[in-house]
Simulated assay, not measured.
Amino acid sequence: MSRLFLLFITVPVLEILIYIELSRITGIGVTFALIFGTGLIGAFLAKREGLQVIRAIRRELEYGQVPGNHLLDGLLVLVGGILLITPGLLTDITGFLFLLPPTRKMVREFLKNKIRKWIDNGQIRFYMWR
């Protein structure tokens, strides 16, 4: 069984179990408030952080620099926003980690190291056309 398939099965099951247990402990009203609250806060954060990343990319391009870190930040903000739209506590936590600048930086550096290893090992190749 592929890892991706396993991920698409286990994450929703875990999310449902978490919501059932949370609503049992706190009540269904608090659980729904948490679902909607994280959605609203997530949408606000995704918009704010996304606009900041776009401004930073434009600024670097104006100075003739390649916006490598900011492009990864933009990708993480996009993925974080998508995760916050997806119902679930685990996806919300992960989405917030991708949206908040301090934790996003840690994830970005982890990704950069991973991509460097893939390039060094020949798992990623770049082709140029002329």
Score class of each variant (00 low, 15 high):
Arg130Asn: 14
Pro67Ile: 00
Ile35Gln: 03
Phe110Gly: 11
Arg48Ser: 13
Ile57Asp: 00
Leu72Tyr: 00
Leu22Arg: 09
Ile85Phe: 02
Pro67Gln: 12
Arg59Val: 10
Val107Ile: 15
Val30Glu: 14
Leu83Cys: 15
Gly29Pro: 01
Leu51Asn: 11
Arg59Cys: 11
Gly64Val: 07
Glu62Thr: 05
Arg48Lys: 13
Arg59Phe: 14
Leu51Val: 15
Gly122Ala: 06
Thr86Tyr: 08
Leu22Gly: 08
Arg59Pro: 10
Leu17Met: 14
Gly81Met: 09
Arg104Tyr: 01
Val79Thr: 11
Leu6His: 03
Asn113Ile: 09
Arg104Met: 03
Val66Leu: 06
Gly50Asp: 01
Leu89Ile: 13
Phe110Ile: 10
Gly88Lys: 04
Ala56Arg: 04
Leu89Tyr: 14
Pro87Phe: 05
Ala33Val: 06
Arg116Glu: 12
Tyr127Lys: 07
Leu71Gly: 07
Gln65Met: 06
Asn69Gly: 10
Leu89Pro: 03
Arg130Thr: 07
Val107Met: 15
Arg3Ile: 04
Leu7Ala: 05
His70Ala: 06
Met106Thr: 12
Asp73Met: 12
Ile41Lys: 00
Ala33Cys: 05
Ile115Lys: 05
Val77Cys: 04
Phe44Ile: 10
Thr86Phe: 10
Phe32Asn: 13
Arg24Leu: 15
Pro101Ser: 06
Leu34Tyr: 03
Thr10Gly: 13
Arg125Ala: 15
Leu100His: 04
Leu14Trp: 08
Ile20Pro: 03
Gly80Met: 02
Ile93Gln: 09
Tyr127Gln: 07
Gln52Val: 13
Val107Phe: 14
Met106Asn: 14
Leu34Trp: 03
Leu40Cys: 10
Val13Pro: 01
Phe44Arg: 04
Ala56Pro: 02
His70Cys: 02
Thr94Met: 08
Phe44Asp: 00
Gly39Ser: 14
Leu71Val: 11
Ile57Gln: 05
Pro67Val: 02
Ala56Phe: 05
Glu60Asp: 01
Gly27Phe: 03
Thr103Phe: 15
Pro101Asn: 01
Ile82Phe: 13
Met1Arg: 02
Gly74Tyr: 11
Leu90Met: 08
Gly80Ser: 07
Ile25Val: 10
Arg58Glu: 08
Gly64Asp: 00
Arg58Phe: 06
Val53Gln: 00
Gly64Glu: 00
Leu7Asn: 03
Pro101Arg: 09
